[in-house]
Design a protein around this nucleic acid. Structure first.
Length: 232
DNA sequence: ATGACGATTTACT
DNA sequence: GTAAATCGTCATA
């Protein structure tokens, strides 16, 4: 048995509609290799599909094509990293074929490798905008959000447009499938301004009961703290 | 040149 | 639950 390095996901994996890719990415391993060789990795536990031209919530709605979202138009397997709220980065995996600006937002990871470095990265980021940046952070808050995981893995705009199928610093590896009965889907987060019906499209996907998702599933009670019930 | 706005996170009431 | 932080980007002029 060789080592921990898994099989890299190739171009064929990404060449499909964003809605399918978002589900297929659950359970796969995102790997970040730092300049000093440190390997950071986590399993994808939450994604969102952005459908492109016909999706009011997408940066490429109605064919919008600007310097910022240029990489959405590249081929499947390209990274689309953008800057928002004056302080955060978010990472997408481009789906489909060249010219079709569909993408999948990575919303949360279960960290598996390089946790101490991730803690350092998160603490450094928090220290800038918060006075409590040096307080210890529970593991389930390391990568449980699109901007948090970018902080933890040191993903910024320098990585925008890279080819995840060939790059040596940021890529995806195949990992064991998530059991089908743990797959969940529901409306996307933070896109209310897109209005109906897009606001309600069930294009968010996550692994049920994972403590690393950015938010618990709608209408579902977290296993860690069941709601009090009479007669039980 | 200007103004409005975030695919968020964090702290606080 | 609400609100602040913080600035690149884009549409408008």
């Amino acid at each position: 048995m060789p080592d921990r390095a898994g099989r890299r996901l190739g171009p064929g994996f990404f060449d499909r509609p964003a809605e399918q890719l978002a589900q297929a990415l659950l359970g796969q391993r995102l790997v970040r290799v730092m300049p000093d060789g440190t390997r950071l990795a986590g399993l994808v536990v939450e994604t969102e599909a952005y459908l492109g031209i016909d999706d009011p919530a997408s940066h490429s709605h109605r064919g919008r094509h600007t310097p910022r979202n240029h990489s959405m138009y590249a081929r499947g397997g390209t990274a689309y990293v953008y800057f928002t709220y004056g302080m955060h980065f978010c990472m997408n995996v481009v789906a489909s074929t060249p010219g079709d600006p569909a993408a999948v937002l990575l919303r949360a990871l279960e960290p598996t490798e390089g946790l101490s470095t991730m803690h350092r990265h998160r603490a450094a980021s928090r220290a800038r905008s918060s006075k409590q940046g040096n307080l210890p952070l529970p593991t389930h808050l390391l990568c449980s959000g699109p901007a948090r995981l970018c902080q933890a893995l040191a993903i910024d705009r320098d990585l925008d447009g890279i080819d995840l199928t060939t790059d040596s610093t940021l890529f995806l590896e195949a990992a064991p499938h998530v059991p089908a009965d743990l797959l969940r889907r529901g409306p996307r987060i933070g896109i209310d301004a897109a209005g109906e019906p897009a606001r309600s499209w069930p294009l968010r996907f996550w692994v049920d009961q994972s403590p690393h998702v950015s938010r618990p599933g709608p209408g579902r009670t977290p296993a860690s703290e069941p709601k009090p019930r009479r007669n039980q």
